[in-house]
């Protein structure tokens, strides 16, 4: 079944698989994310006396708490140990889960869509409901209080902070620049090689500034200009002002 798929084709093999869609409170969701790669709890499906199935989720002991949970659990509140699942059917609509895998796209990750596959269709909808306990309420209160606090505080300082005058050019910068400049100046590339490189650059774009070319080639500006005068023309008119492009005899931008 491993036939070659085009980029926009969707792998539908998982379309038959049933999936539950579970609504999870934010705090629990955060905990789960913090504990990715391990068990988070046990789902207990049992029948109650009146014939209905009861689904309960029991947290695993020793779950890693995310950072934002500390304030919430400070005031005697705690994350509920057990959540009940309220299971319902999907009515009036069909829901399908699509997975998009961008593995192997590397640098194209922001340009292209990944390989697509259907992971299943949603057969049940569940809601993860916290128990009606005091500890839970306290935790929620802690949450609300914490979210109400401003992120920045005003603090009075007794001593004046040590300040430095702003400097445009630091010594290190100057030294680095100097080194860079000297490096450019000292090493002159073989003329043919440089010319070839410049031609290659012109293959990508038609117009270049001298400054850009010089930086690209990492060669002295005068040397680059010397070659440019051989093979390129300087534009002094607005559309591509103060840029170089190849002389017509060297140009072959085939469409």
């Amino acid at each position: 079944m491993s036939r070659k798929r085009t980029r926009d084709e969707v792998d539908c093999e998982g379309a038959k698989r049933g999936v539950w869609l579970v609504k999870v409170p934010k705090y629990l969701s955060d905990i789960w994310e913090a504990n990715a790669g391990s068990d988070v709890g046990r789902l207990n499906i049992s029948a109650s006396n009146n014939g209905k199935t009861v689904v309960k989720l029991k947290n695993r002991q020793g779950l890693i708490m995310p950072d934002n949970m500390e304030g919430a659990t400070a005031k005697g509140g705690s994350i509920p140990e057990e959540h009940s699942f309220i299971i319902g059917d999907i009515v009036n609509q069909t829901m399908v889960v699509l997975g998009e895998d961008k593995k192997g796209l590397n640098e194209d990750i922001n340009i292209r869509t990944g390989s697509l596959s259907l992971e299943g269709r949603v057969v049940k909808r569940a809601e993860c409901r916290p128990p009606d306990s005091l500890a839970y309420l306290k935790m929620k209160i802690g949450h609300i209080e914490k979210s109400g606090q401003p992120k920045r505080h005003i603090q009075t300082i007794d001593k004046a902070a040590v300040k430095y005058k702003p400097v445009t050019m630091h010594d290190e910068d100057i030294a680095r620049m100097k080194q860079k400049k000297e490096g450019i100046k000292t090493v002159r590339m073989d003329k043919d090689v440089l010319r070839q490189n410049i031609f290659m650059a012109f293959e990508k774009h038609e117009y270049y500034r001298l400054q850009d070319l010089q930086q690209l080639m990492n060669q002295p500006a005068s040397y680059v200009k010397e070659i440019l005068q051989e093979i390129a023309v300087y534009n002094s008119q607005p559309p591509h002002k103060s840029m170089w492009n190849l002389k017509p005899e060297y140009r072959s931008y085939s469409t």
Binding site: W32, G37, S38, E100
Partner: peptide
């Protein structure tokens, strides 16, 4: 909860 995979995204259609 499996290891988080940034490359894989789940979308409900």
């Amino acid at each position: 909860v499996p290891e988080l995979n940034d490359m894989k995204r789940f979308t409900v259609l």
